[in-house]
Design a protein around this nucleic acid. Structure first.
Lengths: 234, 234
DNA sequence: CTTTTTATAGACCATGTGGTCTATATCTTT
DNA sequence: AAAGATATAGACCACATGGTCTATAAAAAG
């Protein structure tokens, strides 16, 4: 155990429940490896304490009255210290977990969890890892997959996706339209005459059941036409 | 132990490494609660076996030569049995994990993991849960957060996002443009004359540095103008 | 209390866009 | 060999779109 040689990690607690706040502070103090540099019962006060003490980690309650926890995460990360945020909540609400992780929480733990697990979570996060207990990560992934299923379902249904009726050439033309190129430009790119482009475009309108290029482009985007190229990141 | 009363779960294995395939089959047979109904060294054969035996779960290797694992997941889910897929891989490649989970894998385990953990993973998935070992879920989340950081960074930068220069009214007009509405339509919706709309639109073009409505709409979409309303799910 | 910004709107004009119809040449499919 | 789909393209025409300039009233900023 070289615990005593290691510098204590600075921890800050934000929770509107004062009892709980004090409880955690006791727990962390007993552990001996942490230095609870401040506690706050709301985000605004918490932010000021963070500016003052620049803690290594903030335990942030998600369910607070005025300013909510999600907003808190955003504002803490805007401070641009590398303060890590461990989200804390009474409920395993999938949506809340998802959004918290999305905006950069390094972990998410339930208040009902054993104190040993809380300690472990804090240590993992301090070591640069991301910690989600199995139960919560399970919830997260259900939600995550659900949202993608809905997205792909929307793209693939819409009564058999009208995009599939387009010919090869029409797809090429549509792709250029989605880059905001004029008839003349498309004609030059594809080495065909402007009127040919117009013919293709008109056929595209027919097939997609729209009346102008903007609507065609919007249809293409909303129905996954570009997803392979544009949305690569996600 | 009411293990012997429970119906054995049907398992199918797909892995281009035959040694490994047999190894896992042995392991699962020894366990006694699983019935390995088939093994395959490529996705095509595997798909046929799935159609024949309708297994409860498929262990699918991600790193295979011809048809890759991701495609395999998609094709299995297209079969529309509720066969669960547990992805199996030699490497903890974040991108691969992310994409596998995105398209519906119920879990992801490394080949280097202890057999007890593999068994546990299979059982969790069979129980309808999603299983990602802590190390992998950590990797996943880093990648996940990274992709969102890039997205918001792109939206907020682009040299101070030209969208921020738009006035309230101009934003309203632009929003209607992104719905594929004509000048006349916008004029009616906002109770102003058509020429006023044109003036606004021209100012929008100036500010966004584009020459036509399609480009303006594309700019808006690519720079997060609609993200609050459209991308709610994510 | 000026000055600037914003929302409003008219006039005029060039041209890009979309609708419709016709007409080949090629390539598939039957 | 005949029929159908596809890519090509011309001719019109109506009108929506975009560019530019001017102008006014109200609101915000200085």
């Amino acid at each position: 155990m070289r615990r005593e040689f290691k510098k204590k990690s600075k921890v800050l607690l934000i929770d509107d429940n004062y009892e709980h706040l004090v409880g955690i502070r006791e727990l962390l103090n007993l552990e001996g490896t942490f230095d609870v540099v401040g506690i706050a019962t709301n985000v605004s006060v918490g932010l000021n304490l963070i500016k003052k003490y620049q803690p290594d980690i903030v335990l942030l309650d998600m369910n607070m009255p005025d300013k909510d926890g999600l907003q808190g995460i955003i504002e803490i990360s805007k401070l641009d210290f590398d303060t890590k945020v461990l989200a804390l909540s009474g409920y395993d609400d999938a949506d809340l977990i998802f959004r918290a992780m999305k905006i950069g929480a390094k972990g998410y733990v339930l208040k009902t969890m054993a104190s040993a697990q809380l300690i472990y979570a804090i240590e993992e996060v301090l070591n640069g890892k991301i910690y989600l207990p199995l139960a919560l990560s399970s919830r997260f992934f259900e939600y995550f997959q659900q949202s993608f299923r809905e997205e792909t379902a929307k793209q693939e249904s819409t009564e058999e996706n009208l995009l599939s009726y387009l010919t090869q050439r029409e797809e090429e033309v549509l792709e250029l339209l989605t880059q905001g190129i004029t008839y003349k430009g498309v004609a030059n790119k594809l080495f065909i005459s402007e009127t040919t482009v117009k013919t293709h475009v008109n056929n595209i309108f027919q097939k997609l059941q729209v009346n102008d290029r903007t609507q065609a482009v919007l249809y293409a985007i909303n129905n996954g036409f570009l997803s392979k190229k544009v949305k690569l990141a996600v």
